[in-house]
Design a protein around this nucleic acid. Structure first.
Length: 591
RNA sequence: GGCCUCGUAGCAUAACUGAAUAGUGCACUUGAUUACGGCUCAAGAGGUUACAAGUUUGAAUCUUGUCGAGGUCACCA
C-alpha cells in the first residue's frame, strides 16, 4: 500500500470528523527542502468548512493525523501548509519489498487494457530523413513505450507517403537526368539517391520558370505552366491510372528509399508493428468521400472538386478531392484512419506530427467526427515544435538541413573522441568499444531531444548535446556504470533484514524518489511526455550521486546497513535502466 | 489581416496543471577527495517569469490588452 494513499485516507477522515466535510481526493506535494517534513498538505481549500484560520486548521488536522496514524511521526505548520514528518519504517519496508522487483512501476497489459495506436515518422519517399524526423521518431517511439508501460496495449505504426506529386518529381528527374543511376552504381544510400533527384527536379524547374518569366509571363502563371511541372502532374495521373511503365519506375525508386530508411531506423533504434502506405489507403479515402457526398457531409463544386464546409465550426472550407479527381493529403488521411480503425479496433490513436500541421489535424478529426465515427473523439495529435539550430532555422533551400544519418555518425564520433581521451576502456575489444561509442552517442542525442517538453520549439546545439556533464544522457549513463561497478565489487552481500533501520536523510530522499516512479510513468503517459521521464531520471541520478558522496556503501558501519545501501544502489540502477529504456536509451555496464 | 502556439538569469531549460523564498544544467567564483570510478560532490553569484491591468487567501500558470517570435490560412504534403 502506497504511503500517500494511506495518509490521504487519514486526511479524508480527519476532514469528515473535524469539519463534517466530504472530500474525495487529497492532493499532497512533497515538502520543500527548506522545511522539515516529507509530505505537505495545503489546507487553504478547507478553510471554508473549518471556519478557522489556516494555521489553526492545519494544526487541528495535523494533531488528528499524528494521533491516528502510525506513519505520521510529527508535523509542523507554516502558514497554510501542513508539513507531515513520516517515519522511516514505511520507506524501509518499501525498499525491502521492491528493490528487486522486475519492471517496477510498469502496469501489466491484459485483455481489458485500452489499446492505443501510435503513429510516428511517416516520411515522404522523396527525400532522406533529417533532424526534424529524428525528433519525431524519438518522440513517437518513446511515447509508445511509455504508454505501454502505463498499461495499454500499443501498436506502433507509420503511414508512408509513397504517392503524390513529390515522388513523381523525383521519378521524372531520374528519368530525364539519371542515366540509369542506381544505389549500387553510385554507392549512394537509396533514400539519398532519390532525394538528389528531387533536388535536381527543383533546380531544372526553376530554370524553366525563369525562362518563362523572362519571356514576359507572370511568376505564378509560369510556375503553373512550366513543362516539367505539367509533366510531373501528367505522371501522377498516369500513376493513378495504373500506367505500367510509371508504376514500375515508382516501385523501383520507392524500394531504394525503403532500403535506405531501414538503415536509418535501425540506427535510431525505432520499430513499427505495421506500416501503412498511402498508395493503398487513398482509394478507400476516395470511396469515403463519395459516400460523404451522399450523406451531405461534403459537397461538389461546378469544376468537380469536392469540399467540406467547416464554416459553422469557425474554420474554412476544406478541399478533400481535386477537380481532376485525384486525391489530396486529407483524402488519404481519412482513408488511413478508417482502415486502421477497422483493422485494429483500437480505442485511441495518436498522431506524432509537427505543429505546422495543427490545423490539418483539427480538420481531419472534425471531418471524421462528422462522418459519424465514434472513435473520432479519441484521436490525439501529438504536436511537437520545430527543431532550430544555433545558426537559425533549418532550410532546405539554404542547405542547412541536418541529415539524420550524418548526425548519428557525428554523435558516435564525438563519443569516441571523448572516451578515448579518458581512456578507461583498454580491456575492451575494438568491436565492444565501437558498440559503446554508439550507445553513448545515441544516448546523448536521444536524451537531449527528449528532455524538452514536446510542445515546445527547441534549439538543438550539437556541441552541448554531446557534453558529458550536466543534464545529459551520458551523465546518466555514467552514474549507472558507476553503480554497476560498486555492485560488482559488493559481490553477494547477504541480504539482512534492515527494516528496523533509521534512514540517513540522503537515503530517505532517494527512496522517496524511487517510490514515485510508478506515478511518473502514469503522468508521462497521460501527458504524452517523455520529458517527464527524462527529468525524473536526472533527479534520481543527482540524488544518488549526493547519497554516494555522503555515505559509504561498501564500508558501511555494519553488514545490515551495507545490505540496505547495496539494495538502494541496485534499485537505483534498475530504475535508471528502466526509465532510460522508456526513452529508447540503453545504459552500459562500464564506460 | 483572421486563427493557433510560444516569450522564465548570458545561454539551454523545469515547476506534479493555482500554492511556501520560481528549481536545474552550461558558463563564472570558491571549496572537498590520500577514491565504493573526479565524466563526482558541496557552496556562491546570477530573475520585476516580455509588458500592463484584472480574478483569487494565493498567479510563471486563469482572463483581457500591448509588444515580440514562430506556425497556418494551397486543387503541396
Amino acid at each position: 500500500m502506497d504511503i500517500q494513499q494511506n495518509i490521504s485516507i487519514g486526511v479524508v477522515e480527519a476532514l469528515k470528523s473535524l469539519y463534517d466535510l466530504e472530500v474525495e481526493l487529497i492532493d499532497f506535494q512533497p515538502t520543500r527542502k527548506d522545511f522539515d517534513g516529507d509530505l505537505t498538505l495545503v489546507v487553504f481549500p478547507y478553510l471554508r468548512s473549518s471556519r478557522k484560520g489556516p494555521e489553526q486548521t492545519a494544526v487541528e488536522i495535523g494533531e488528528y493525523l499524528k494521533e491516528k496514524l502510525n506513519e505520521v511521526e510529527d508535523f509542523n505548520v507554516v502558514k497554510g501548509f501542513l508539513n507531515l514528518v513520516i517515519s522511516d519504517k514505511p520507506y524501509v519496508d518499501f525498499l525491502s519489498e521492491n528493490s528487486s522487483v522486475n519492471n517496477f512501476g510498469f502496469v501489466e497489459v491484459n485483455e481489458n487494457s485500452t489499446s492505443t495506436m501510435v503513429e510516428y515518422s511517416s516520411p515522404n519517399t522523396n527525400k532522406p530523413l533529417h533532424l526534424g524526423h529524428i525528433r519525431n521518431n524519438l518522440l513517437g517511439y518513446s511515447v509508445a513505450e511509455i504508454i505501454k508501460a502505463s498499461g495499454n496495449k500499443v501498436y506502433k505504426t507509420q503511414i508512408i507517403n509513397d504517392r503524390g506529386i513529390h515522388i513523381c518529381k523525383s521519378m521524372l528527374a531520374w528519368e530525364k537526368f539519371g542515366e540509369g543511376a542506381t544505389p549500387e552504381s553510385t554507392g549512394l544510400k537509396g533514400d539519398k539517391l532519390v532525394g538528389a533527384y528531387y533536388v535536381e527536379f527543383d533546380r531544372a524547374y526553376k530554370v524553366e520558370v525563369k525562362e518563362l518569366v523572362n519571356g514576359g509571363m507572370e511568376q505564378k502563371e509560369a510556375e503553373k505552366r512550366a513543362p516539367l511541372m505539367l509533366e510531373a502532374q501528367q505522371m501522377l495521373r498516369s500513376w493513378e491510372a495504373k500506367d505500367a511503365e510509371v508504376i514500375k519506375l515508382w516501385e523501383m525508386m520507392n524500394k531504394w528509399v525503403y532500403d535506405g530508411f531501414e538503415v536509418t531506423y535501425n540506427n535510431l533504434g525505432v520499430d513499427f508493428d505495421k506500416n501503412y502506405y498511402e498508395s493503398n489507403t487513398y482509394l478507400l479515402g476516395k470511396e469515403i468521400i463519395a459516400k460523404g457526398i451522399e450523406k451531405g457531409v461534403f459537397f461538389k463544386k461546378e469544376d468537380g472538386s469536392v469540399w467540406c464546409d467547416l464554416t459553422a465550426e469557425g474554420l474554412d472550407e476544406k478541399i478533400v478531392l481535386r477537380s481532376d479527381g485525384t486525391a489530396v493529403y486529407m483524402t488519404q488521411d481519412i482513408g488511413t484512419a478508417i482502415e486502421r480503425a477497422i483493422e485494429f479496433g483500437v480505442d485511441e490513436m495518436i498522431y506524432t506530427v509537427g505543429n505546422e500541421q495543427d490545423y490539418h489535424f483539427k480538420v481531419l478529426f472534425l471531418i471524421l467526427d462528422k462522418l459519424g465515427y465514434d472513435w473520432a473523439k479519441k484521436l490525439y495529435h501529438l504536436s511537437y515544435g520545430m527543431v532550430d539550430l544555433p545558426s537559425g532555422k533549418m532550410k532546405s533551400r539554404e542547405g542547412t538541413v541536418v541529415d539524420a544519418d550524418d548526425l548519428m555518425v557525428e554523435m558516435t564520433d564525438t563519443a569516441r573522441a571523448i572516451s578515448e581521451e579518458l581512456g578507461k576502456l583498454e580491456e575492451y575489444s575494438e568491436e565492444k568499444k565501437a558498440e559503446l561509442y554508439t550507445e553513448i552517442g545515441m544516448g546523448a542525442l536521444k536524451y537531449f531531444m527528449l528532455k524538452v517538453d514536446p510542445k515546445k520549439r527547441m534549439l538543438f546545439d550539437p556541441k552541448e548535446s554531446i557534453d558529458f556533464n550536466g543534464n545529459t544522457g551520458p551523465f546518466i549513463q555514467y552514474t549507472h556504470a558507476r553503480i554497476k561497478s560498486i555492485l560488482r565489487k559488493a559481490g553477494d552481500v547477504a541480504k539482512a533484514d534492515y527494516t528496523a533501520l533509521k534512514l540517513h536523510d540522503k537515503e530517505k530522499e532517494l527512496v522517496k524518489h524511487l517510490m514515485n516512479y510508478p506515478n511518473v510513468i502514469q503522468l508521462a503517459a497521460k501527458n504524452y511526455s517523455p520529458a517527464l521521464i527524462a527529468n525524473y531520471s536526472y533527479d534520481l541520478v543527482k540524488l544518488y550521486n549526493s547519497f554516494y558522496q555522503n555515505v559509504s556503501i561498501l564500508k558501511a558501519e555494519d553488514e545490515v546497513v551495507k545490505s540496505m545501501r547495496v539494495d538502494i544502489s541496485a534499485f537505483t540502477a534498475s530504475v535508471i535502466a528502466s526509465s532510460m529504456k522508456l526513452l529508447g536509451i540503453t545504459v552500459p555496464e562500464r564506460m
